[in-house]
């Protein structure tokens, strides 16, 4: 628990690491907008290729980015399937006759049950699920004998397929870009960059320095509070609370026995911290000098120009096409 990593920063050395956090933040937003505006199939592929090459030239391990994508795999997959099944515009591009017979239904159920029973032992769960889905369709398509109930067709439409493709690639690009940002930027630098980028909000009387201070203190105290939670859990466990087992009702009680002390301790801590900060001359909203400064390099200008050019290109091609 002591060596917990906040954020997903991975130390490394490449041009992505030496870039100013402000550049990375603005470029992320610009490129995201660009990814949303792309309409042509070819441009989308090029964009995906460019982002992937950014990974390679920035010396970021593809595995890390995959780990960033993995929690969202299901969502990606689901939107893809959803679009294919329910978007029925444009031309039919794929027709698969299906036969619902007693035998095929029985076989499909058998496949599903087999999948359900074995899925926990398979490493590539999503791939396994895909294979199962294909297998079920194959069963309905090929087994056309044995007491036929009804016939059906599975249709894929052009519009459905292209929308599904665009949504998926867009999401992948966005997730990849933001993963690049979090991998190559320390949380503290990111925070400082965010503070500076949002500085214009001062016009509407939002004090970005204060927000940045809150975020940095939150970052600072996450490991401390996790440690505390661990201690409390051990203390409760020694009094017979079992955090792993039990019914839902018991679990709620157990969680409360963790949350209540955590809540009280956090308030005591924040009270102490507020005193310590004030005693060291901190006055909210007062101007402060800063130890950390951000330096704008030529690389940042180049990166900025390139991302805006990409956005302009996308907008122009959208208008022209």
């Amino acid at each position: 628990m002591k060596n917990i990593v906040i954020g997903r920063y991975v130390p490394g050395n490449s041009f992505l690491y030496s870039m100013d956090p402000r550049t990375k933040l603005i470029a992320l937003i610009v490129l995201m907008v660009a990814a949303f505006l792309i309409q042509s199939f070819a441009h989308m592929l090029v964009a995906l290729l460019l982002v992937t090459s950014l990974l390679i030239f920035g010396k970021i391990s593809v595995k890390r980015v995959y780990l960033g994508l993995r929690p969202l795999m299901f969502l990606l997959f689901f939107t893809f399937i959803f679009q294919i099944l329910f978007n029925q515009e444009g031309d039919e591009i794929f027709v698969l006759p299906l036969h619902y017979t007693a035998l095929s239904i029985f076989a499909a159920v058998a496949v599903a049950v087999f999948w359900f029973a074995t899925k926990k032992r398979v490493r590539f769960k999503l791939l396994y699920f895909l294979i199962t889905v294909v297998a079920i369709f194959a069963v309905f398509h090929f087994i056309d004998f044995g007491f036929l109930f009804a016939r059906g067709t599975f249709r894929v439409f052009e519009e459905g397929l292209s929308t599904a493709f665009f949504i998926m690639v867009r999401l992948i690009i966005i997730i990849m870009l933001s993963t690049i940002l979090t991998i190559t930027t320390k949380p503290t630098d990111l925070n400082l960059g965010l503070e500076r980028v949002l500085k214009p909000l001062g016009i509407v009387r939002i004090n970005t320095e204060e927000i940045a201070m809150i975020i940095s203190i939150a970052l600072r105290y996450i490991p401390t509070l996790l440690d505390e939670a661990n201690k409390i859990m051990l203390a409760q466990a020694s009094r017979g609370v079992d955090f792993q087992e039990g019914k839902l009702k018991d679990k709620v009680v157990q969680i409360i026995s963790l949350l209540v002390p955590m809540f009280i301790i956090s308030f005591q801590r924040s009270d102490d911290l507020a005193n310590a900060m004030e005693a060291r001359s901190f006055v909210p909203g007062q101007p402060r000098t800063r130890l950390h400064v951000l330096t704008w390099k030529r690389l940042d200008t180049v990166a900025m120009v390139v991302s805006f050019l990409a956005l302009t290109f996308v907008i122009v091609s959208r208008v022209v096409l």
Binding site: P187, T188, S216, I217, L219, R220, Q268, R269, D272, L273, A276, M277, R280, S281, F282, V283, Q286, R288, T289, R290, L291, H292
Partner: peptide, 18 residues
Amino acid sequence: NQFVGVTVRDDIAFGLEN
């Protein structure tokens, strides 16, 4: 509860920044 900075350097700097 009196360690404000994310690192030792930041913490010593805190009062000076103020």
